[in-house]
């Protein structure tokens, strides 16, 4: 039986080396391309005939659109709608990445810390830039709550600062850990099914089925969490409290 972490191995498909750096097109890259082509195809067909009374595909696309739009409106407010395309792209990409990983023999690029950290750090930097661009140095005021006694500043400010700086890490680690752990668990249990299948019958199969359903749920939930946290961070930058 293969190791449960073997599924995360990155295999180069088209080796590319530039100045001694490995930039190969890998199975991870292939899935990323799939995460672009799938939604592109889906949205192309879903919105090909733009009817007022939507067809099935079109209503799915509309629900997705409204879902993100409402998420931004609820968590950031009207001002946040300016960033709708970015957040929508982010959600679709992460969601597709998680979901593609659920297919057998495919690869989950969101289970790699490099990907999630790159996304989270990019979000963190952009949000921080937005915050400073909008509020200037006053943005730092956020780390010290209004009305708190001045004596608590040496303690509160470092705590809030570290809490703020840990955002990209907790954001990326959360997505990475959920996807990795879920897939390892699935793989291990599937291995049990293969081993027990002849003896145990349907029971292990039912368990794997249940875990698979749970994994689909987690894949969707983590994409949602990743996006909503982005919205919350954006809200902090736009509307200082």
């Amino acid at each position: 039986m293969a190791s449960p972490v073997e599924q995360f191995t990155i295999k180069p498909l088209v080796p590319i080396h530039v100045a001694g750096i490995d930039l190969s097109f890998t199975n991870s890259s292939l899935m990323m391309v799939a995460a672009v082509l799938l939604p592109a195809t889906f949205f192309w067909f879903a919105t090909a005939r733009r009817t007022v009374v939507p067809g099935r595909l079109q209503s799915v696309a509309e629900i997705l659109y409204e879902f993100i739009a409402n998420m931004i409106r609820d968590n950031v407010g009207k001002e946040g709608m300016k960033y709708f395309p970015y957040i929508f792209t982010l959600f679709v990409f992460v969601f597709l990445g998680n979901m593609i990983g659920m297919l057998p023999y495919s690869f989950t690029f969101t289970s790699h810390i490099a990907v999630t950290a790159a996304l989270a750090v990019a979000i963190f930097i952009v949000v921080t830039i937005i915050g400073f661009a909008k509020h200037g140095t006053h943005y730092l005021r956020m780390f010290f709550p209004h009305g708190a006694p001045l004596a608590t500043a040496p303690i509160l400010i470092p705590i809030e600062l570290i809490s703020y700086l840990s955002r990209p890490f907790s954001l990326s680690v959360r997505l990475f850990a959920n996807m990795t752990v879920g897939h390892i668990m699935l793989k291990v249990l599937a291995g049990f099914v293969v081993a027990l299948g002849i003896v145990g019958g349907l029971m292990p199969f039912a368990v794997v089925l249940g875990i698979t359903v749970l994994e689909f749920f987690i894949a969707a939930l983590q994409a949602y969490v990743f996006t909503i946290l982005t919205c919350i961070y954006l809200n902090d930058a736009l509307n200082m409290h």
Binding site: D22, T26, S28, V33, P85, Y86, A114, L119
Partner: peptide, 18 residues
Amino acid sequence: PSQILWLVITIFALYLVM
């Protein structure tokens, strides 16, 4: 490097599509 490069390329492509 490969992962980040392709992540940037694909997410930019997806952004354009969207």
